[in-house]
Amino acid sequence: MAKSHVSTSINGEPVEYLCDPGDTLLDVLRNELQLTGTKEGCGSGDCGACSVTLNGRLVCSCLVLGVEAEGAEVGTIEGVGANDKLHVIQEKFLEHAALQCGVCTPGLIVSTKALLEENPNPTEEEARYYLAGNLCRCTGYDKIIRAVMDAAETMREGA
C-alpha cells in the first residue's frame, strides 16, 4: 500500500509527512514525527492522554487519521508555552502539584488550554465535566482542578 503524503501545520509550523492511510494522527505524531509528548493510554478515545487540537477543536488524536490532518492546524503539548517560558497552565500544574506520574499531564494541559479558550471563567463543575475525558489515576483530580481554576483566574487577570 502506497503511503499518503500529507501537508499540515503542527504548532504553527509547516510539516509534511508520509503515512499509511490507516495510521492515526497519534501514530504519526509519535512514531513519524517523534512528538512523543502526546501519550497513548487506550487507543479508543476513552482516556484523553492523546488530546490535541485539530483546527482549534479538542480531539483524541487516536481517533483521527493522519491523512485527515491535510491542510489542517494541529496543536500538541509541544506547542503549549513558549520555548523559554512555561504557559500559565503549566506553571499552575507544577505549583499545585497537580501531577504525580505525569503521563496524563500533557493531555490535561492541552485540554485545559482548550477549556480556558472556550470558557475563561468556568465553574468548578464546568471544569470537571469538560475534563471528564482526561483520566488521571494518581491524583483523584483534586489538585488538577485547583490548578485549572487558579490558571483560569490568573489568565483572566492577565487578559
Binding site: 488530546s51 477543536r57 483524541c60 481517533l63 475525558g133
Partner: peptide, 9 residues
C-alpha cells in the same frame, strides 16, 4: 456523546 474530545469529532 463521549468526552469533550469525542464531541470534537
Amino acid at each position: 456523546i463521549g468526552s469533550t474530545q469525542v464531541q470534537g469529532r
